[in-house]
């Protein structure tokens, strides 16, 4: 295994651990609080719920993409 591959694997593992902690916090805080309110909206206001589905998944994707890109840059340098 070359030094370059070892370095890439190490930074990937560090990234997974950091990201894992962030995600565990996210599961506990955000989704736990969001669940009951979203369930109620899905029952009472289906159009609003449909709109929220698209907004939430798009919003979360953009935020998570920024976080993972930031972590990649932090661990592997600006070249990534």
């Amino acid at each position: 295994m070359t030094a370059e591959v070892r370095r890439a694997l190490f930074s990937f593992l560090v990234e997974l651990v950091v990201y894992g902690f962030l995600i565990a916090g996210y599961f506990l805080l955000v989704l736990h609080l969001l669940g009951p309110s979203l369930g109620q909206i899905a029952k009472d206001h289906i159009r609003l719920y449909a709109l929220l589905c698209v907004v939430l998944i798009l919003g979360q994707s953009i935020v998570l993409e920024s976080i993972t890109t930031f972590l990649l840059r932090l661990l592997r340098g600006r070249s990534e």
Binding site: E15, L16, Y19, I23, Y26, F27, L31, L34, G35, L38, Y49, L52, C53, L56, I57, Q60, S61, L64, E65, I67, T68
Partner: peptide, 13 residues
């Protein structure tokens, strides 16, 4: 959507 949001946390990376 909650299931999709959880799956997406893994998919992002």
């Amino acid at each position: 959507i909650l299931i999709a949001l959880v799956m997406q946390t893994g998919a992002a990376i």
